[in-house]
Amino acid sequence: MKKYINLATALIASLKPKSKIPIIDSYGESMLTQDEQQALMEWLFGSLMGAGYIGKAHLIWDDGKDREREIFTALMRNEPIFLYRQGARPTPTVEGYVWRLIGEHPSLRVYQLVVEGEED
Rank of each mutant, 00 (worst) to 15 (best):
M31D: 04
M31Q: 05
A88Y: 07
I60D: 06
N6G: 08
K56H: 06
G87I: 00
L44R: 10
I71A: 02
H58V: 13
E104N: 14
S26Y: 08
M41G: 01
P92K: 10
Y97A: 09
I23E: 12
W99D: 03
Y111D: 07
E29Q: 08
W61C: 09
G52C: 15
P80Q: 00
E36P: 02
F45I: 00
L75Q: 02
G117S: 10
Y4A: 15
D62F: 09
T9W: 06
E118Y: 12
E68V: 10
M31L: 07
T9V: 14
G46Q: 00
E104F: 00
F82P: 01
S107F: 00
F45E: 08
M76F: 14
K65F: 06
P80T: 05
V98A: 03
V110Y: 05
E70R: 06
P22Y: 04
E95Q: 06
H58E: 11
V115F: 09
I54V: 15
L15H: 15
Y111F: 15
L83E: 02
E29K: 08
R85H: 00
M41P: 01
A74I: 05
L32Y: 01
E68L: 07
Q38E: 11
I54Y: 12
G52S: 00
T33N: 02
T93Y: 00
A39I: 02
T93D: 01
S26M: 04
D62Y: 05
A51V: 13
R100G: 07
M49H: 15
P92C: 05
A39D: 04
Q38Y: 02
R85F: 00
Q38D: 02
L59C: 03
S107E: 05
E116W: 10
T91G: 00
T93H: 02
R69K: 11
G103C: 04
A39C: 00
G103K: 12
